[in-house]
């Protein structure tokens, strides 16, 4: 098990992704006017994309 796939690192990664996803999903809910199921689905997927990019960006910057 290399350093990056140790359970603790995977847990940390998931926690960070989840935190970003929750924040961005909340932002989506704030941005839209009417909430229905389709908005929630699209919002959840956009927040997921945003969370992945946020983590990739953070790692890209401090990875050097």
């Amino acid at each position: 098990m290399t350093r990056r796939t140790a359970p603790r690192a995977v847990l940390l990664a998931l926690a960070e992704l989840l935190a970003w996803w929750a924040a961005l999903a909340l932002l989506w809910l704030v941005l839209i006017t009417s909430v229905d199921t389709l908005e929630r689905i699209v919002g959840a997927s956009c927040a997921a994309v945003g969370a992945l990019l946020a983590r990739a960006g953070r790692r890209a910057v401090t990875w050097r």
Binding site: L24, L27, W28, L31, C46, V49, G50, A51, L53
Partner: peptide, 9 residues
Amino acid sequence: PVALVTGLY
């Protein structure tokens, strides 16, 4: 990420 989600919105 905020700008990306705003763009997708």
